[in-house]
């Protein structure tokens, strides 16, 4: 298969997934409001002391993103039927192209999720605007991509398993921990004037490792799911 054909398949898979999500509307109509409610409820549970809220705000944002984003990332592959998976196989779609296309679509949805919740976090928690805040845009992008890779990988591992809706979040949660720690630590580093490079390298390395594992295991996982 040529590179052009591979990327055409990636594009078509992503386009189809986004169109399906656009019609189902679960991200915007269900997941985002629930994420917003979670951000709203947490201050009520832990108190309204402004300094503390400002300090924990960014951590809460990434925590909520990971918890609810998990549902976004996993939803795409969880809704596939066996007939749909078999159709892709018979159309000669490279399973790696399916993995990449699906991950890109999820990453875009997660970015939308983050872009909506970020201003809400600023309003509710009022975290200080730190020097070098544009780095956070890169972090938001890397978290979305990393979480999308984790969710798609979990979806592929559990495809065809009857208990997949329980099993997949259990797989996603531990793999998301480095994303949560490094994204929160980048903000802390910027706030305290510490180096953020190790955490950015960790995020990049996580994304790269997940992408490589996802692409390398796509074919055997697709075969075992049949």
């Amino acid at each position: 298969m040529t590179a052009a054909e591979f990327w055409r398949q990636v594009f078509e898979i992503a386009r189809k997934d986004l169109k399906v999500e656009g019609r189902a509307g679960e991200v915007l109509s269900i997941t985002v409001p629930f994420g917003a409610v979670a951000l709203l409820l947490l201050p009520m549970a832990i108190g309204t002391e402004k300094t503390m809220l400002a300090k924990i705000g960014p951590g809460m944002f990434f925590g909520v993103t990971l918890l609810f984003g998990m549902l976004v990332a996993f939803r795409q592959s969880a809704s596939d039927t066996q007939a749909q998976r078999e159709l892709l196989t018979l159309l000669g779609i490279d399973p790696a192209a399916t993995f990449v296309g699906r991950s890109f679509a999820s990453a875009l949805l997660l970015l939308v999720f983050e872009v909506i919740l970020a201003p809400l976090t600023v309003i509710l928690y009022n975290p200080p605007l730190v020097d070098g805040w544009p780095w956070m845009l890169l972090i938001i992008l890397l978290v979305a991509l990393g979480l999308a890779f984790v969710g798609t990988l979990a979806g592929a591992v559990t495809a065809g398993v009857r208990t997949r809706s329980t099993l997949a979040p259990l797989l996603v949660a531990p793999l998301s921990v480095p994303l949560l720690i490094s994204s929160s630590q980048v903000y802390e580093g910027l706030r305290l004037g510490r180096s953020i490079i190790p955490w950015i390298v960790l995020l990049l390395a996580m994304n790269l490792a997940l992408a490589v594992v996802g692409v390398a295991t796509a074919k055997p996982l697709e075969e075992t799911s049949r």
């Binding site: 298969m1 169109k19 189902a24 007939a83 159709l87 000669g92």
Partner: peptide, 19 residues
Amino acid sequence: PAVRRRISLIGHQPALYGE
């Protein structure tokens, strides 16, 4: 994949995306 593209299967469940 080139061989699989020459095969068409219509099974019990429609291979369509409902949305």
